[in-house]
Amino acid sequence: MGINVGITGLHATDNPAPGIGVIRSLKHPEGWDGEIIGLAYDVMDTGVYDENLLDHAYMIPYPNSGTQQILARLLYIHSKTRLDVIIPTLDSELALFQHLEPELRKHGISLFLPDSIATKRISKPNIADFCKELEIDTPKTYAVKDSGELDKAIKEIGYPLMVKGAFYEAHKCRDDKDTINYFNEMRQKWGYPVILQQMIDADEYDVCCVGDGKGGMLGALPIRKTRITDKGKAWAAITLKNDQLFDLSKKIIRDLKWAGPCEIEILQEKNTAKMHLLEINPRFPAWIFLGTGANQNLPKMVVDLALGKDVQPLPNAKSGVTFVRHATDLICPIEWLEKLTTGGELHY
């Protein structure tokens, strides 16, 4: 019997969610022995219309709809299409799935997630304290909890600086006008705190890691983005062999006893070559399919971990493997939209 996997984060635009990359990884190279169930928040989440990737698509309520409503919906889906494993791929839904995990497990639905203490330690407002504890360098960061603190934060950090939302988005600011505008925008979109962070002249690297939950790092995929969009998202990237990145990632995973996937963003200062931890995203990155070319199929590993299998660390990633993102169009009959809109589910 194959393993059925439910995956969220299916909206793949110029700011793509990671779900599509996760599904493509699971199906690489010869398909998936089980069914892939897309869990969508919006009927226009683009990935639900890819019949070559999904076997089923179900609408689910947004994370802020309340845990009981979401649990009920997931159990309804499970009653119709068995869910063995769920891989949530969005920052904003992690706390919800952490909360629901024991109940879902009782019904035979497995997840492999970091604990809430680890995720709190690496949240954007707390990352500076985390770096201090581990004696890791990080750009000067200020979590602004009300507009009265803004002036003080600007003075402490200086220009240029980044204004970041609590969950998503980052904007470069060169003066007070920019900072105030983006501060208000981030506050309205994502709530407090709004993060102000020093900009340093540095090269940026990312490492996608999977931790075993006991301090071990089971896989690591270090990359440099070689083309980015105006939102700073990777449109092309290349895999690396870099001991400094690997060692820093290992140190972080060990200290957090991280379970499951994360994306560690690291800056290397141009003048000093010093490594700075920028942030840690508690999920797969959207570029995760690149791992399939570098002997790091990390989504498959996470399914095995969720199922409680014994998983051994992978050898180092192959360096010099690149991806280039390529936008394409899906042609869909109107009935697909109709079924999702009126019935909340679609079966290919």
Partner: peptide
């Protein structure tokens, strides 16, 4: 890695 064509790739920085 240096290829015959003179294309040089730095595995550490990409």
């Amino acid at each position: 890695t240096l290829s015959e064509s003179g294309f040089l790739f730095d595995h550490g920085t990409g």
